[in-house]
């Protein structure tokens, strides 16, 4: 197998794979599988009622906090 043929094969496979991916993406967007709102909401999945947005976790070296807790 010589070089040009091999290179052509790689490019061909890459182009086909890329077009499948693009088509799937286009299809997904048209079927409203993706939406802008959806994506931004995703960033909030890691928070919940008990560990809400705006509340830092893992606060260890804060002395004032420690004293409060020890009561």
């Amino acid at each position: 197998m010589n070089l040009p043929l091999a290179a052509l094969l790689v490019v061909l496979v890459a182009v086909i794979a890329a077009s499948i991916a693009l088509a799937a993406f286009y299809w997904a967007v048209r079927r409203k599988q993706f939406s802008i709102r959806d994506l931004n909401e995703g960033a909030y999945t890691i928070f919940d009622n008990d560990e809400p947005v705006g509340k830092p976790q893992d606060v260890m070296f804060d002395d004032s906090r420690k004293q409060n807790k020890k009561q």
Binding site: E41, Y44, T45, F47, D48, P52, V53, G54, K55
Partner: peptide, 24 residues
């Protein structure tokens, strides 16, 4: 300890809560 304004974070929490399917 909570530098964010309260309304803002409450709003975000609500949105996050609405987003989870199960809060059983």
């Amino acid at each position: 300890m909570t530098p964010e304004s309260k309304t803002k974070s409450n709003d975000a929490t609500e949105r996050a809560k609405a987003f989870h399917q199960s809060d059983l």
